[in-house]
């Protein structure tokens, strides 16, 4: 699906600024993320994490700077890029009055997936929801919704997956299932995760980024990070920007 980016980088963020008037949600953010990496983004509330992910997923445009995801520009190549990204949020992003199967078939239509029914059945099986495929998602538990949400995000076989606090609101059992699912697909995708949970985020990631007041405070590979020092930096930033 599509050509491989020449640099081999899944993300290339250069001087990314997002501002409205004087307020800067993101201020000259720079970083590269290689393909196949798992990036965890940490930071206090209002640090710009959600804004960053919204720009990377083409939902917002940058005010200045350039952003390439999978080698595609988020502004000029937005429609093409949307074929390559998936999002799993703490919000399920599913229609409550459609069945599990109808939800997936609807999004399959939106993406123009060939053999949609086949693909939907396969995904429902992999998230262990095939027995509930004809039930309205209104009747689903939080954990089931999150599994279905993962199936929706994987429908079009995206190259890069964004996880926006996927663990928030999940019970321990649902967290286990999510862990297993992520472990299964880990090798096939690049991951970008927003997390409030430092231990969880560090456990999963290959790269870590701390954002505060719209600026990158720290960005490094997991192996190069001294965990104690990292925790100290994180704690220092959490106080920042919180009014």
């Amino acid at each position: 699906m599509g050509e491989t980016p020449l640099t081999g980088n899944a993300l290339e963020v250069r001087g990314l600024t997002r501002a409205f008037g004087a307020r800067k949600a993101l201020d000259k953010v720079d970083f590269d993320l290689p393909e196949g990496a798992f990036l965890s983004i940490f930071g206090p509330n209002g640090a710009g994490k959600t804004t960053l992910v919204k720009i990377l997923t083409t939902l917002l445009n940058p005010s200045a700077g350039s952003v390439r995801v999978c080698g595609l520009d988020v502004v000029t190549d937005a429609v093409e890029l949307r074929h390559k990204i998936g999002l799993i949020s703490h919000n399920p992003l599913l229609y409550a009055d459609l069945t599990a199967e109808e939800n997936l078939l609807f999004f399959a239509e939106m993406y123009g997936i060939p053999d949609a029914e086949e693909r939907v059945r396969e995904l429902l099986e992999s998230v262990e929801l095939d027995h509930r495929r004809l039930d309205l998602t209104r009747t689903f538990s939080r954990g089931m919704l999150q599994r279905l949400s993962i199936a929706r995000a994987l429908l079009h076989r995206p190259d890069i997956l964004f996880l926006d606090e996927p663990y928030s609101g999940l019970d321990p059992h649902a967290m286990d299932i999510l862990d297993t699912l992520i472990a299964q697909i880990r090798g096939e995708h690049t991951f970008v995760m927003i997390s409030h949970d430092l231990s969880k985020g560090l456990e999963l990631c290959s790269h870590a980024l701390i954002l505060a007041n719209g600026k990158v405070v720290m960005f490094d590979e997991r192996d190069a990070i001294d965990e104690a020092a990292f925790r100290e930096t994180y704690r220092a930033t959490v106080g920042m920007g919180v009014a």
Partner: peptide, 18 residues
């Protein structure tokens, strides 16, 4: 309201649709 309920509008906007 349906679109807003569980953030579906974001999923719709994320898909390659004009």
């Amino acid at each position: 309201v349906h679109e807003k309920d569980q953030g579906c509008i974001d999923a719709l906007l994320l898909s390659p649709v004009d």
